[in-house]
Design a protein around this nucleic acid. Structure first.
Lengths: 240, 240
DNA sequence: CGAAGGGTTGATCAATTTCAATCGCGGTGG
DNA sequence: CCACCGCGATTGAAATTGATCAACCCTTCG
């Protein structure tokens, strides 16, 4: 099976055969997690770096009032928290949203690999910068976009991220997330996101059903979202 | 004058005299920026790393509809974008909110310094992890907190950050930001933030006037905000 | 067959924005 | 020294968005 992590890293820096081999070796062993299973919780001692090979994860936090906010989606190929071991404990939780395969890499191993393979270091740093850009884009969405724009924007982002790791089929891609999960990521209620999705469907921009998104009119969707892909920094590698 | 950057870094890792000297040398030369001046704009080619020595900056983005969203405040001691040179162009802008002194450090110099001074590398990585935690906290606030909670939470954060670099006096600290700027950071209108501040003042939790915040009742403010400081990871160093 | 989770819809309520005015204060030009 | 200007703060009233409350439906799965 393809190692999506290697795929993604190759897209961020030119990797030699030796670089690829090192990455594959580091992520050869993976653990399986069931959907809804926490990989690590807020307050836990920090651990190894996670690398998602299959399935979707999310970072989230539960507030005192019981509501949940998802701060990031992690899809195949994504790694989290390069130097996390420098911190004493986690300030948020990470959970599997679908059954997932996740490799764990100790900070020391990662450090050694990066010292020996500068291209890998470069790719990791770049990935981290892109992740920060994504977080900032989320802040912008939550702060200044209406709910419809926000949903459209998230779908644009997820579509491009999925496409860059070869997870799309033409104008479709699998989005195995319930409306409740999407709502928790976008700061709205599942009732409201349902209505927004209906509007987007009737508008002819996009549709979401049975775990699959169809981009019906890309230009229209991008326009609704006010989407500018520059923050994903895909320029690093020509669009396929 | 104190070098707040050195101050902050000392709080994140144990630094030797040689480490401190290196940091001071790297940030000895600083540039002055007037309030409202952009240091770099979205779309610009990426440049050196900025280190704030005096004054406040913010990261922001202007949306197609003309609204602005601030994604981060940078106060004295804060550095931005360690490896930014890996990206081709900026995905957001950085602006001075007050007159500011900012040092610029080239990526190569920074890299050399970190290679030679592992403690500095550790402090930089830690600072970056904390900054990411702050971004996630902002996402949580924007998504799941009411406007009152959100304002209270931001003030708690800024108070602690200011305190950790010695910028507070008892229960007061200087917050040289207009209500419009705060509104753009919190995703609300300046009209509404004004009303929220009034409520917080009447509640007896905090007051903001003439550029200065007074925490009237810390416990009450923390309670309103649902504030948990764990995400600032101050544990690394005993609270002064 | 029955239960559960997710999706859909309607009606009502509450939080925020929007629009409009007014106020106050520091700075500027005369 | 004083009137004037402009930005930021403040307040009121109306308009909107999104949340809440409550059903009901559909499909999956044991």
């Amino acid at each position: 099976m393809v190692n999506r992590f290697v795929e993604k890293m190759s897209g961020l820096a030119d990797l030699t055969a030796s670089d690829v081999a090192a990455l594959e070796a580091a992520t050869a062993k993976s653990h399986r997690y069931a959907a809804r299973k926490d990989l690590i919780r807020e307050g836990d001692e920090t651990g190894p770096m996670f690398v998602v090979l299959e399935g979707w994860l999310c970072r989230y936090k539960i507030l005192p009032n019981g509501t949940r906010q998802i701060m990031a989606f992690l899809m195949p190929g994504d790694a989290c928290d390069l130097n996390i071991k420098l911190l004493a404990e986690m300030d948020h939780s990470i959970q599997a949203l679908t059954p997932a395969h996740v490799a764990r890499v100790a900070r020391a191993d990662m450090q050694a690999m990066m010292d020996k393979h500068p291209n890998i270091a470069r790719a990791m740093y770049t990935a981290q910068l892109v992740d920060e850009g994504i977080m900032r884009a989320w802040i912008v969405s939550m702060g200044r976009r209406t709910s419809t724009e926000r949903v459209a924007h998230l779908i644009c982002e997820l579509y491009l991220r999925a496409r860059s790791i070869g997870l799309t089929h033409d104008d479709e891609f699998a989005l195995p997330l319930s409306q409740l999960v999407l709502a928790d990521a976008l700061g709205m209620t599942s009732v409201h996101i349902n209505r927004v999705l209906k509007v987007l469907r009737l508008t002819g921009a996009m549709g979401l059903s049975r775990g699959s998104v169809t981009i019906m009119d890309p230009a229209k969707l991008v326009n609704i979202a006010g989407f500018d892909e520059n923050y994903l920094h895909r320029r690093l590698r020509p669009t396929n």
